[in-house]
Design a protein around this nucleic acid. Structure first.
Lengths: 232, 232
DNA sequence: CGACAGCATTATGTCGACAATGTCAGGAAT
DNA sequence: ATTCCTGACATTGTCGACATAATGCTGTCG
């Protein structure tokens, strides 16, 4: 299985042309450089990236896998549009799966890993760039935290579904709606509580806290999305 | 998004060569005609199905998506092998996601849909072929029941993940380990209880019952897998 | 006898071209 | 004026061939 987020390959160095194109287009979609809802033509993208349509089609297929584009047979692919319904649907699943991930992590994480994660969090708290609310670092820190717990679950399907199939979409919502508000410090406290639960090997509590954390995050995005819709 | 199990297209009529090949290979893997763990070569399969490698590669990519094969860059694809760890991992996720599906179905299913599902179940109970334990019909009936609930959740990501990405693997375990034992009647009772909970709009209970139902199913398969391993 | 290096073979990755399908604008008929 | 048909255009689906990387064999060396 091609794991897009490969713990052995965190920098995602492309081994093939299709990888290169995938990473580029993926980022462009997530960050809004390619507008949501716009149509992607194979020939156009192929020219743009100086590759033939074969690797490009593979890249599109993999974009479809992570729900960033939708394909209709004989018609083409279109970048997904952000909507209230999709956001809710996405976060409902995140609650379940990341809750499970927490429960499993509480069982399987080595003490050293827990310490490392705890240190990572402290480091992010001290990091000036985070405190100044620079969106990118904050985003990266949060994603890193969630990724580590998911990976610690050691459940291959769970890892694949969350890191490869859902998280790009999560990031798309957060980036495009500009999630850099006052939730930062509260999120840190929530992260801290989750780690503590995991350290205490209290899977049930870790599960509950993660669900609440994600639920709070969802509510936060909901308000932004509301504002976003009112503008457009 | 290409929904492999399309409620509008339950017979999965192939619209493209890639579809045709996909359906054929998918079934062959699920039913064990292509052995678990065996290597699939693009050229070989292309000749076998009288198509070029382009649509075949797409079919393989989609097989990868539903976790039936694993691809290593520049090395090829290999049919997955059944293992205890994978089975557990798979069912852990099913418990969470199908539990969620039940909860959502209890909210969103129309009364008519609940009645229809209830009737479907009664019909399966009466069906002679099911009572005689013919594996295929029993399998189909169970899958149908679960599919309907998942579809009733109206959560696109949930539907996609369960019906398109996980259920072929679930079926692979069941078919290849010969799940046609005495669990049938108990499963029917469990299904019945789930429908009742949904009819009563008790999402919490439906969730719990579905989790237990899947857990029981897992334990049932675990014993078969154990026997399977001891033989081989 | 075992291990390693080099080569031949095979399979995957990529390419450009053709075929089939969908899209859209313009005109004819109602 | 609106609807339907028609045909040209654009885009996707498929093909065969070439480039490149992995696999397996063979012969040689330790």
């Amino acid at each position: 299985m091609t794991v897009i987020y490969d713990p052995q390959n965190p920098l995602r160095s492309p081994v093939t042309s299709a990888d290169r194109v995938l990473y580029a287009v993926q980022q462009a979609i997530v960050e809004g450089d390619i507008a949501a809802g716009s149509k992607l033509t194979e020939t156009g993208l192929a020219k743009q990236f100086n590759v033939s349509r074969a690797p490009l089609r593979e890249a599109l297929a993999r974009l479809e896998r992570c729900h960033l584009v939708e394909r209709t047979p004989n018609a083409g692919v279109r970048v997904v549009t952000l909507s209230y319904e999709s956001l809710i649907a996405l976060y409902q699943i995140r609650e379940e799966l990341e809750g499970l991930a927490c429960r499993l992590a509480a069982e399987k994480m080595a003490n050293e890993e827990v310490d490392a994660l705890s240190k990572l969090l402290e480091q992010h708290l001290k990091d000036q760039r985070v405190r100044e609310g620079e969106s990118y670092y904050q985003e990266a820190g949060d994603v890193d935290f969630h990724y580590r717990i998911i990976l610690a679950s050691k459940n291959q399907y769970l890892i694949n579904m969350l890191c490869d199939e859902l998280y790009f979409l999560v990031r798309m919502y957060r980036v495009q709606l500009g999630m850099n508000g006052p939730r930062v410090s509260r999120a840190f406290d929530e992260h801290k509580a989750i780690i503590t639960a995991i350290a205490n090997r209290d899977g049930e509590l870790a599960d509950l806290l993660m669900r609440r954390h994600i639920s709070a995050s969802r509510k936060n995005i909901e308000t932004k999305l509301q504002a976003h819709k009112e503008v457009s």
